[in-house]
Amino acid sequence: MSSAQSIDGALQVPIIDISGFGDGDAAERARIADHIDSAATEVGFMQIVGHGIPEQVCAGLVEAMDTLFGLPMAQKRACIAPAGVNRGYTAPKTERLSYSLGVYSPDDLFEAFNIGVQAADFPDIALPPEHYPANIWPAGQQRLRAQIEDWFTHAAQVARTMTRIFAVALGLPEEFFAPYQDHTMDVFRMNNYQLPPNDAVVEPGQLGMGAHTDYGILTILWADAVRGLQILDTDGVWHDVTPAPGALLVNLGDLLARWTNDRWISTLHRVLAPIGEDGRLYRRRSAAYFHDGNYDAVIDTLPGCTSPARYAPITVAAHLTQKIAGSRELALNTGAGREADRLRAALSE
Rank of each mutant, 00 (worst) to 15 (best):
N191H: 13
T260L: 06
A27T: 07
A200N: 15
R285F: 13
Y193R: 00
I7M: 11
V103T: 09
A167R: 10
I275A: 01
L268V: 06
I36A: 06
D235R: 14
T67W: 05
H35N: 09
L347I: 01
P243V: 11
D262Q: 14
L347W: 07
T242Q: 13
C58F: 08
L127I: 07
H183W: 08
R285L: 15
P197G: 12
G216W: 11
F152V: 02
R270I: 00
D23G: 11
N135E: 04
R328H: 15
Q118W: 06
L170Y: 09
Y193T: 04
V158P: 14
R263Y: 07
C305Y: 02
Y193K: 00
Y89S: 07
I80C: 12
T301L: 02
W238A: 09
G70Q: 10
A178H: 01
W264N: 07
R29N: 09
V57H: 07
I48Y: 09
A126E: 13
H51G: 01
V250T: 05
R338T: 11
A10Y: 03
G293V: 00
A257E: 10
A10S: 14
G88V: 03
E42Y: 05
L232A: 12
Y282G: 00
L302I: 02
E339D: 09
R342W: 00
I48G: 06
Q322S: 15
P196K: 07
Q181P: 00
A27R: 03
N86P: 06
G208M: 05
D8P: 01
L229C: 10
Q5F: 02
F188K: 01
G293N: 02
N198E: 15
I275L: 00
S6F: 10
D296T: 02
M209L: 15
A83R: 15
A346F: 07
N261G: 13
Y89P: 11
P245M: 07
D262M: 06
V13W: 01
E149V: 08
L11M: 04
A178W: 01
A4I: 02
G210P: 13
V43S: 10
G304Q: 04
G276Q: 01
D214F: 05
R160L: 13
G88C: 06
D121N: 14
D8K: 12
I53W: 00
P106K: 11
K93N: 06
G326Q: 06
T242M: 10
T301M: 08
G293K: 01
K93H: 10
R87F: 00
D23A: 12
D107K: 14
V168C: 10
H131E: 14
D107A: 15
R77N: 15
G210Y: 04
G279A: 06
I16Q: 12
Y295W: 09
G9C: 13
G228T: 00
G326Y: 02
T67K: 08
P303Q: 03
D108I: 05
D8R: 13
S327Q: 02
D150R: 06
Y295V: 01
H269P: 02
F188W: 04
F110I: 09
L268P: 04
T163V: 13
R258H: 11
R338L: 12
A331M: 12
D108H: 05
D341I: 09
T219M: 03
F290L: 15
A78C: 01
